[in-house]
Amino acid sequence: MAEVKLLGAWGSPFSRRVEMALKLKGVEYEYIEQDLANKSPLLLKYNPIHKKVPVLLHNGKAMAESLVILEYIDETWKSNPILPEDPYDKAMARFWAKFIDEKCMPAIWQIMWSKENEREKAIEEAIQHLKTLENELKDKKFFGGETIGLVDIVANFIGFWLGAAAEATGMELVNKERFPILCKWIDEYVNCSVVKENIPPRDKLIAFLRPRFSASSWKY
């Protein structure tokens, strides 16, 4: 049997993406928790460039960056594909996955870390990107159609972490009035069995996030 190991961190949405893909594929793996405040020799050895999780080890070969790893998993283990077969649909899935990582997530983090006088502009930018993402979802159950695919896996930050951050900070960016379609997707997403198995305990995540932000300063 192929030897698969995953270096990850319990609260990292990027690590959880890889775990979700492995679970969807039915791949057995060894999970090795990493302390990102005190990076292990193993992590530094296998990801010397970025020094971040996740890192996937497959038969001794290492790879980093969650999007790269997800594509590798899909190409290596063929059951339950997370990318479409059609070349155009596959290209569009990659496009929207990158849109989430390069547009949506940075905009959301900018709200949390920006100064108060810069926050309104950051909120507007994040809302615009999330509206664009919602328009892509349209009337589909998941971004991947009737089953979870690459874009859904990559959007786990929006599907779960953002709600926990809202509770920890008082910053409710996504609600049914503003994003009815996205909220419907979130409900379907967090109630999907493979997602439930691969998200951190909500209370633990909120407790982790709360001291990092002042709740009173995020209400608007």
Rank of each mutant, 00 (worst) to 15 (best):
K121N: 14
F99D: 00
L57G: 12
V68Q: 01
H58K: 04
E124I: 09
G145D: 04
A97D: 07
W77M: 10
R94Y: 01
N59G: 02
W185N: 01
I82F: 00
L42F: 11
A215Q: 09
T169W: 02
F99V: 02
L43M: 15
I108R: 04
L67E: 08
I111P: 04
C183F: 09
N38R: 14
R202Y: 13
A62C: 12
Y72S: 07
D187S: 15
W161T: 06
F208M: 12
R119W: 05
I100C: 03
A155S: 11
E116K: 12
K90N: 04
L130R: 03
L133P: 06
L150T: 06
P87D: 02
I206T: 07
L162Y: 04
Y72C: 09
K141P: 02
L22A: 06
P200W: 06
I199E: 01
N80F: 09
S217F: 09
I206Q: 05
D152C: 01
V27D: 15
A64L: 00
I73M: 05
K103H: 08
W10Q: 12
Q110K: 11
E3F: 09
A165K: 03
M63W: 04
F208C: 03
L162E: 12
W185L: 06
A168E: 03
K219A: 14
I199N: 00
A165L: 15
F95S: 11
P48W: 10
F213C: 08
F14Y: 14
L83R: 01
P201R: 06
D187I: 12
